[in-house]
Amino acid sequence: MTLHTPGPESPAPGASAARLIYARPEVLRDRSTHYCPGCGHGVVHRLLAEVLTELDLPAHTIAVAPVGCAVFAYDYLDIDFVEAPHGRAPAVATGIRRVRPEAFVLTYQGDGDLAAIGTAEIVHAAARGERITAIFVNNGIYGMTGGQMAPTTLLGQKTTSSPFGRDAALMGYPIRITEMLAQLPGVTYAARGTIADVGSIGKLKAMIKRACQVQMEGGGFAIVEALSNCPVGWGMTPQQSIEHLKGPVVEAYPLGVIVDRGAVAQPTHDLGCPSPAHPEA
């Protein structure tokens, strides 16, 4: 069957008023990604590209790429990028933030990067209330290295480094790190969404947009956790991985806005202390 398919330049013949409903955002480069079939990173990249475009941010953005599957994010998003050592993206972003107050600063990290090797960096960037937007893709596994257990791996989940399933007695419990971060007064916005279905993807996009707006409005640290899948690492078909995501994963990591303290960071007098040693200060 041959169908005429209108390109963006040439709408369908005899249908000059055809309306464009959806097109790939321009900032998402027109090339195939290295991600496996069905991988949620592609969805998060696309949402990010859409939001940046809608907020007119690409020309002002300096982004920090992680180590892990998303290490090549700069091949797909046509914005300025710096590579960070494993886990250090929030520190790298802090350096950018402080010397470029006018830039829009973005980090993109996976769960091994952010919730294991980079815990100190993410906690302290959040504690300082750095005006950065952090995108945290949580698929509960180290995908790039072959599907090893991550700090976010569910109890009982089999991975290449927990071949008998994650046992809490031996390997501890999954970390809800976004909830942990939300405790900190420097965090203006923290939310968790997922790429599991069309509705959730819409909500996730709204969260990413809000996290970007927080930074534009002068707020503090903003983080969006995107629960994602890893069909290959989980040993599932893409469709099975989506079902798993909707079931046990979302159960372990509840969806929704965890904290939204408004654009401008709230005063934190309750955490301050008078300094008798330096009365002049």
């Binding site: 209108p6 008023a17 464009l20 959806y22 949620g40 969805v43 993807i201």
Partner: peptide
């Protein structure tokens, strides 16, 4: 455009027929 919204590889461009 549900297809376009779930696609990890952004392969879809979606048009609506003229009103």
């Amino acid at each position: 455009a549900f297809c376009a919204r779930v696609c990890p590889d952004a392969v879809f461009t979606v048009w609506a027929a003229p009103r």
